[in-house]
Amino acid sequence: MLMAAAAYEIRWLNPSDASAFQTLRLAGLRASPSAFGSSYEEEKDRALALIEARLAPSPDQGVLGAFAGGQLVGMLGIRRQDGLKTRHRMALWGVYVAPAFRGQGIAQALLARAVAFARQVPGAVQIHLSVNAANASAIRLYEQAGFHAYGTEPAALLVDGALHDELLMQHRLHPAAGPVA
């Protein structure tokens, strides 16, 4: 269900948002450890300067934030792959909406903005992501946004002694596109 866009604002984060980003990211890592490849323990002492650098504007990557009443309540990262043979691929990472703000269309709005951004990146053909294979609501969200599963990575994450499979998904930005020259 989508709520009116006036209920929240979606915009690109910048270095001045580093503290709010770190607070929300750490909350997500703590609340949903099996939803992320990183961990709270790995990121809790990360220097703010590193986060500021991560949020610096770039033409082929960034972090979108959803704000409600001036508070960062949702986020999504997208970046182009670095390798010469993989630069046609964008990677979606770090998708999280605070529990109190779920069900308001925020994740859908973040995804729509990320897909629109990726379509504007020269040479980008597809977006890839991985999602916990047991997270049915997240999988449904991605499917509704045009992502399709293409495989499963068994035992991709080990969280608190439990193995978690990851579903690998992709979204073709230009469905009729053939090989990229």
Rank of each mutant, 00 (worst) to 15 (best):
S38K: 00
A47R: 15
N14V: 11
Q61K: 14
R30L: 05
T23S: 06
A47V: 13
L26I: 03
E52N: 07
A47D: 15
L24T: 07
A56L: 06
A53I: 08
Q61F: 10
L55H: 11
L48N: 12
A56Q: 13
L29T: 00
S39Q: 01
S32M: 03
E41C: 04
L48D: 14
F21H: 15
Y40I: 01
S34V: 02
R30H: 09
Q61D: 07
W12F: 09
A47E: 15
A31E: 13
S34Q: 13
I51Q: 07
D17W: 12
G62L: 00
S32L: 10
A31W: 06
L48V: 15
L24S: 05
E41K: 10
S38F: 06
A53M: 07
E41A: 14
Q22I: 07
R25S: 04
S39C: 02
R54G: 08
V63P: 02
R54V: 06
A31Y: 01
A31S: 11
E52K: 13
L26N: 02
R11H: 04
R46N: 13
S32H: 14
A49V: 15
G62T: 05
R54P: 01
K44T: 10
F21C: 07
G28N: 02
T23R: 11
R25Q: 06
A49S: 15
A18F: 13
V63W: 12
A27L: 04
F21E: 09
L26Y: 06
L48E: 15
G62H: 03
G62S: 05
R25A: 02
V63L: 04
R11C: 05
L50E: 15
L29S: 01
S39Y: 02
R46K: 15
G62N: 08
E42L: 03
S16T: 14
T23C: 03
S19I: 12
P15A: 11
W12R: 04
G28Q: 06
W12C: 02
G28R: 02
N14G: 15
D60T: 12
F21N: 02
F36Y: 05
P15H: 09
R54Y: 15
S38G: 00
K44Y: 01
D17Y: 08
E41I: 04
L13V: 07
L48R: 14
P59V: 13
D45S: 12
S58N: 13
F36M: 01
L48G: 08
L13D: 05
R30G: 04
F36D: 00
R54W: 14
G37E: 03
R30W: 09
A49F: 09
S16C: 11
